[in-house]
Amino acid sequence: MTEQSSAPHSERDPAATTDAHESHDHETENHRPRDSKGWDGKLRLDKMTLTDEPRDPHVEVVSDPEVSDDEGPPPEQLPADEDLLDDTPEDEEDIELVHCKISDMASLRLERFKQMKRLCLRQNRIEGISIPADAASTLTEIDLYDNLIAHIKGLDAFTELTSLDLSFNKIKHIKRLNHLTKLKDLYFVQNKISTIENLEGMSNLRQIELGANRVREIEGLETLTGLEELWLGKNKITEIKGLNTLCNLKILSIQSNRLRSITGLEKLVNLEELHISHNLLTHLSGLEHNTNLNVIDISANPIEHLTGLNGLTHLTEFWASNCKLSDFNEVERELRDKAELETVYFEGNPLQRSQPALYRNKVRLALPQVVQIDATFVKQV
């Protein structure tokens, strides 16, 4: 993974919305976290919102104040006689109007576009979903990222949908979606959702993004047996549980929560990536059954020792920046046998801070198989 500056999808911090808009564009096919200061793929946190110092696991976590629902003055309305799609051919399959101050979808007269497959109305001022039911037979993707939607309504007819993005809205409850049984990708980043609910029967879902909400408990996912990616960063989760039926899960991102231990992963034998940075972990036990893991990010946790990695023979990337690791002998003992290991991050640990001039050479001696240490590639001799 290449390190890059924080920038986002979805799961974004409100302070980082400008950067965030650049990241969850649909061209972002590979939305893996780029560094541990950052975040779940599409969403990256502003650097100022996370400390790189591991938190004290003994300090009680105080709840963040809830965001006010006061949205300020009413949105500026688009003149009703302005036709933003006047020059668009009526056989157009991809309708996109971004940042156009649209508040009323009906004024777009979308019924003209009989072959519409994708509708993208990002960064507008839409409060309610209003799409002609005639489009239901062709429409497969709806992107309403960054609007003012508070309630999920108006999607009853759209059973052909495979992708729905409602990130950066004001949604508090997941409702009226479980008839969308063909849906594969569902994005709810940066809303006001506190409960994962009403997703029963959506067995074709491949990924769901719920980063930067108010979720306290992992629940309501039992029937999503096709799920491959689960993004839960920046919530208020204290325990990993409720995942036993998700046997196809490959990526679990649960960064920036309130976890004190790794639990509930025993059945996830196909898990390939675990992103669990910025929590309160003090040890790595709980990964004994996840032998297919190839990427682990434990950065910014108060972890002092690396025991708990036995059997993870397929590790290719191990991210452990800004922890409390201090023993090169332990690094060698726990990681040297990982023949596929290519990338390690240990910057910000006592390993690096105590002897910065010798640090890289010591890592190379301990782990001769790696080709990248932190953000720098190892010079091949």
Rank of each mutant, 00 (worst) to 15 (best):
T291L: 12
D46Y: 06
V363F: 00
I102K: 02
L221M: 13
E3Q: 09
P73Q: 07
L335T: 03
Q4M: 08
D69G: 11
F168N: 07
R260A: 10
L268I: 07
L265F: 07
C100Q: 13
R216P: 02
N235G: 08
L50Y: 03
K324C: 11
A133C: 08
S63D: 15
K192A: 11
Q115L: 13
N178Y: 04
E127D: 10
S63I: 02
E266C: 09
S256T: 13
R214K: 12
T195E: 08
T2Y: 12
G211N: 04
K172F: 04
K324D: 02
C100T: 07
P74I: 14
D104G: 06
E53P: 05
H314W: 06
H99T: 10
E334A: 08
T162I: 13
A106Q: 14
K241Q: 14
W319S: 01
A106I: 09
M105W: 01
L199D: 03
R353P: 00
E266N: 14
E200P: 04
F377E: 15
P33S: 13
L252N: 00
P79A: 12
N248F: 04
P89D: 13
E141M: 11
V62R: 09
L161N: 02
E330I: 10
P302E: 03
Y359W: 10
L205W: 00
E141G: 04
N244K: 15
L284V: 11
N169Y: 04
Q207L: 11
L85W: 03
H21N: 15
I208N: 01
T28I: 10
K114Q: 15
G308W: 05
L108E: 03
T49M: 14
D337V: 06
I131K: 00
L177R: 05
I102P: 01
G311Y: 11
K182P: 03
I262V: 13
A7W: 05
T195H: 09
L246H: 01
T49G: 06
K37G: 07
E304N: 07
P33A: 12
P302C: 05
Y187A: 04
E29T: 11
L367C: 11
I196K: 00
W319V: 00
S354D: 11
L199V: 04
R360M: 03
H9T: 15
N124G: 11
T28S: 10
H314I: 03
K184Q: 15
H289K: 15
K153G: 10
G72Y: 08
E11M: 06
W231S: 06
K362E: 12
S107T: 15
H289V: 09
K153N: 13
L183F: 05
E71K: 14
A300W: 00
G38A: 13
